[in-house]
Amino acid sequence: MIEFEYAAPTDLDEAIGLFAQAGDRATLLAGGTDIIVQLREGLRRADLVIDVKKIPELSQFEYAPETGLRLGASVPCWQIYENESIAAAYPALADAVRIIGGWQIQSRASVGGNLCNASPAADSIPALIALGAVAHLAGPGGRRAVPVAEFCTGPGKNVLQSGELLVALTLPPAHAGSGSAYQRFIPRNEMDIAVVGAGSWVQLDESRQRIAAARIALAAVGPTPRQAVQAAEFLCGKEPTEENLHEAGELAKQVATPISDMRGPAEYRTHLVGVLTRRTLAAAVERAGTFQP
C-alpha cells in the first residue's frame, strides 16, 4: 500500500465534486472493511480516498411502519439487527447483517458498502432484492433511483457512473402477513463467504393460508446476484406446502449458473440453491404467520 490523500467531506455536493474531479483515481470509504483490505493487498489503487461517513444524508437511519426503512449508505450493520422493530419487519436483512464478518466488522461495515462492492457472494444483496429495496444515487448529473435487483452488473461492478455515489437504500413498508429470511451455506459456522446464499420474501394473503406474492434472490450463483422470478411466480396463489416450496427450489436452480472454485463445485452450488431456497421460504412463511407491523 502506498500513500494516498484522504478527504472526509461533510456535504454531499462537496463529496460528489471531489469524486467527479478525481475520477478513477478516487475511491469511497464507508466502513472500509472491503476497501482497506483491497488497497493493502494491491487489488485496488487510489490516490484519493473519500470518507463518506461524515455526510449527514449517508448516515440517515429512519424507520416507520407506514413508510418503511430509509438506510443511509454508511449506516453500519449492527444498527439494523440491534433495532427490534426493523429486525422484525425485515428479518432477511437482519439475518444477513448478523453474519457479515464478526461483530468488529459489523460495527464498521455498512449495507451500502456491501452493495457497492458488488460481490456476487455478498450476503446483504439477496436480502435487499427479496425485500424490494431501491438504491438512491447522486452524482454530477443529479439524482436517480435504481432497484437493487438491477444495481450489480458484474463481479465488483455496478451501475454507478463516474462521480456518482450511493446515498441511501429504501425498503418498502412491511405489511402484516409478510416474512422474509436469508441463509447462506458455508463449510464452517462462522467467518466464511457464502458458497450459495438465498434470500426469500413472502406476503401471505388475508387467510394466511396462501402465498399472495414472493420474491427470491440468490448469491454466489453467477457474476451478479440473481433473482429467481419463475420460482417466485410459481408460488403466487399457492399454499406453502413442503411440495410447493420444494418445487420453488427446483425452479430457482434454473437461474443458477455458478462456477467451480475453492468454495465449491458448480454442481454442488446448484444443488444448494434448491436446499436454501426451500429453507428460506419455509422460514419466511413461518415468520409471516406472526408478523404484525
Partner: peptide
Amino acid sequence: SFLDYRIPTAFD
C-alpha cells in the same frame, strides 16, 4: 488466506 483455507473456529 484464512478466509478460504478453513481451519476450524471456536464455532466449529
